[in-house]
Amino acid sequence: MRYLALIPALLLTGCYVDPYTHAPTPSPTDWYQAGWDDAMSGQPIRSNPVIAHLHNDENVDREEWLKGYAGGQERICDPKFLEILGESGKSFPASCETLPDVAERQAQWEKASRKGFQDSFMH
């Protein structure tokens, strides 16, 4: 009978994993990708302290982050992409706010947004 009490304890210790023996080593931050992701998610340009905090990495490569941001900005701020965002009810990305022709792009997005809104009531 006393051996039955040991069975749960044995089962539980068999499942124990030491968290320090298999701890992954963090890979270096891909700053280009981080900038791309920020632009594509519609985020405005961020300061180094904010970027460092978000990625838990104090060694921000601002130049690479800005290159990635510009690449993502080019993609998300493309007029055709903005039309898709507008028609699907998504908001105008803040990452497009710094472009010189932001008024034109916002007008395209608003037109698509109105069309998407009207189409949603037609169907």
Rank of each mutant, 00 (worst) to 15 (best):
K67Y: 12
Q43S: 14
T29K: 00
V17A: 15
P8V: 01
P44M: 10
R75C: 04
N59S: 13
Y20A: 14
S47W: 10
P100I: 00
A70L: 09
R105Q: 12
D37I: 11
H123R: 09
D61N: 15
T29V: 14
L11M: 06
S88R: 09
A9G: 09
H55S: 06
A70W: 01
E74L: 13
G71E: 11
Q108P: 06
P93G: 03
Q43I: 08
Y16M: 08
K111E: 15
L82M: 01
H22W: 10
D30M: 06
D18F: 10
D101A: 03
E58S: 13
G68F: 01
H123P: 06
K111T: 14
A23T: 12
K67S: 12
L99T: 01
N48Y: 10
L6R: 05
D119H: 03
Y69W: 06
E64W: 08
Q33F: 08
G86H: 00
S113P: 06
W36C: 05
L54F: 09
Q43M: 12
L10I: 09
L85V: 02
K111M: 13
D57R: 04
A103N: 10
A5E: 13
M40E: 10
P93N: 01
W65Q: 03
L85D: 00
K90L: 11
P44Q: 09
Y69N: 04
W36H: 10
Q106A: 07
L11W: 02
Q108A: 14
Y32S: 11
Y32N: 08
G86F: 05
S41G: 13
P100A: 05
V17N: 09
I7H: 04
G14R: 00
G116L: 04
A94G: 03
V50S: 11
L54M: 09
A5Q: 13
L6C: 07
I76D: 00
G14Y: 00
S113Y: 08
L11G: 06
F121H: 05
W36Y: 14
S27C: 07
T98A: 07
P19D: 07
P79Q: 12
K111A: 15
I51S: 01
G116Y: 02
T29M: 05
S95A: 09
T13V: 14
M122W: 08
A23E: 14
E110T: 08
N59P: 08
L82I: 03
R114Y: 04
Q108V: 13
C77P: 05
L99Q: 07
